[in-house]
Design a protein around this nucleic acid. Sequence first.
DNA 1: CTGAAAGCGCTAACAG
DNA 2: CTGTTAGCGCTTTCAG
Lengths: 338, 338
Amino acid sequence: MNITEFAAYAGVSKAAVSRYFNGGYLSQEKRDLIANAVEATGYHPSLQAQMLRTRRTRQVLVILPKLSSESCARMVEGISDVLDQNGYQLLLVNTANDNTRELSALNLLQRNTVDGVILIATIFTAEHRTVLGSLRLPLMILGQQYPGFCCISHDDRGAARAATAHMLAKGRKHPGFLGVTMMDKAAGLDRRRGYEDALQAAGLYPQPTRMAIAAFDMESGYEQAAALLTRAPDIDCLFCATDSIAIGALQYCRTHHIRVPEDLMLAAVGNSEAGRVASVPLTSVQLHYRTAGQIAAQRLLDQLAHPHTPVEGQVLDYALIPRSSTGDALPQGNFWAE
Amino acid sequence: MNITEFAAYAGVSKAAVSRYFNGGYLSQEKRDLIANAVEATGYHPSLQAQMLRTRRTRQVLVILPKLSSESCARMVEGISDVLDQNGYQLLLVNTANDNTRELSALNLLQRNTVDGVILIATIFTAEHRTVLGSLRLPLMILGQQYPGFCCISHDDRGAARAATAHMLAKGRKHPGFLGVTMMDKAAGLDRRRGYEDALQAAGLYPQPTRMAIAAFDMESGYEQAAALLTRAPDIDCLFCATDSIAIGALQYCRTHHIRVPEDLMLAAVGNSEAGRVASVPLTSVQLHYRTAGQIAAQRLLDQLAHPHTPVEGQVLDYALIPRSSTGDALPQGNFWAE
DNA sequence: CTGAAAGCGCTAACAG
DNA sequence: CTGTTAGCGCTTTCAG
């Protein structure tokens, strides 16, 4: 049933029906007439026709690098919460860290098939600036700072500083660093800076031989921990950019008779489930992923509602969760501390 | 630029342009003309207009109960792979195990805003049968068997049997069971049956006092393990319906001087990352989540392409991964066994 | 093989 | 407050 048939059925004009569904001027009389007819027929306007006519789709595109990553999944959950509540649909593109897929995602944008975009970003290339810069749609960047765009991100530097400082405060003098590519500004560069901040505050100097770069997974954490601890066996506390990497490092320690935390303290950023239940529960810094997703979505919707109000980005704070890997035994029965 | 302007620019008719993009009859001459004009202008048809006109959206709705669950995330990745490759968009609804949200998802369906649906299901209610039964769209159910619908699922019963049998084969005589609600047929009922199969094959009988039901998280696994092992302290091997529950049980053991695997063996289903790196690496059964997602998406697209070909469901197999929690020490250096 | 023409279902001026 | 009207951009008969 289309609007014409429905209007005839209800005994009103098409325009009245349209107004009914879009909050226009309408007498109570007609309003009741239409309400009854809707009740009787189950009529509702066609989204496709509305999209074509209004040039708005009420769909938001979310682009992310990897779904089966706890942090991404939580951000998307936050986004989904807010979008759902506001009657928006969520279009998902998982780029799998793959350029081909990013292109297909950007293709979507050029076809104007969504009202706005949330990009869960890791690495920005020159191409990104070009494409994002020429984007006409409202855009939110999640998890990174990118000058000129509206970003919701975490205090990665502060988080890394807190984790490192926590170990140094326990008297460790030989810190090591296991990071990720500096091309990832948040997880790579900022967390390294935070690490260096902590060293400096403790009167220590970062030493390249005590630093290594891993990929984003446990396997790589294992391998790089092996390389690093072989090269610099006197390291007595190790900051890892992600929980996954730290867990890899922990596995290395476990098989090479390095006691954690006695011989080596370990602290990371992410506060993942796996870290909480690892062979030695991992001290980690919690970032507010879900909240970040909610804020990003809300800001995007605000922007959609008020296109000319400039939107502010935001940097969310963090919370250090000390656990056994830095010698902070949990109180009895409290394994589930966030 | 719309099709009229573009046709004028290219010096052909609108119909020719439409045929160009939809693979209709077209002379090579016009084809070249249009190709050049596309090159020059970057024109592409409006998706919205196509949707309205053809009544197909090239969008598939994925409904799932929880995104930040490793299994769901992997299934969605599989779905996303296939959809992407075939030029379909993925609309995501995270129901958060919440009926309100499921309703809003079903609302989408009634508005015919998608071409097909993939439902990652947990619990079916009477309402489900009503709604799903009256659905006109192609539907795939993922992770459950539901008679009358096309389902891609796992051999949950076989998986549970294998995990349990593995422990019994090691000489354990007092098995325990930590399951989930039977309302979830796959994870609840089938896995319990698999457990019972294994007992029967070993000449044992399931005893209600040695069985308990937990929720889907570690916290609940901890609590229910506590209750169960207090009630039946002679249990020497425990099958858990999910890795999360097993990890909770493991945490309980860890704090109550129960040695795993010496005093208590532990095996589960899911083969999660957390289980691999838990304080005692967890023996678990791997299910092929990603593959399941790919198959479901592919089958759905097949159905979309050939609406009258009946589609067959499929039950995927499993693979037992023995680890330390059942006394199967991994070979040196092989922490990353799948 | 091709173009003209008729809508798909809706919204937004516009003139009452 | 209301109805009429003119499209949004495209696909698809239909008659060449």
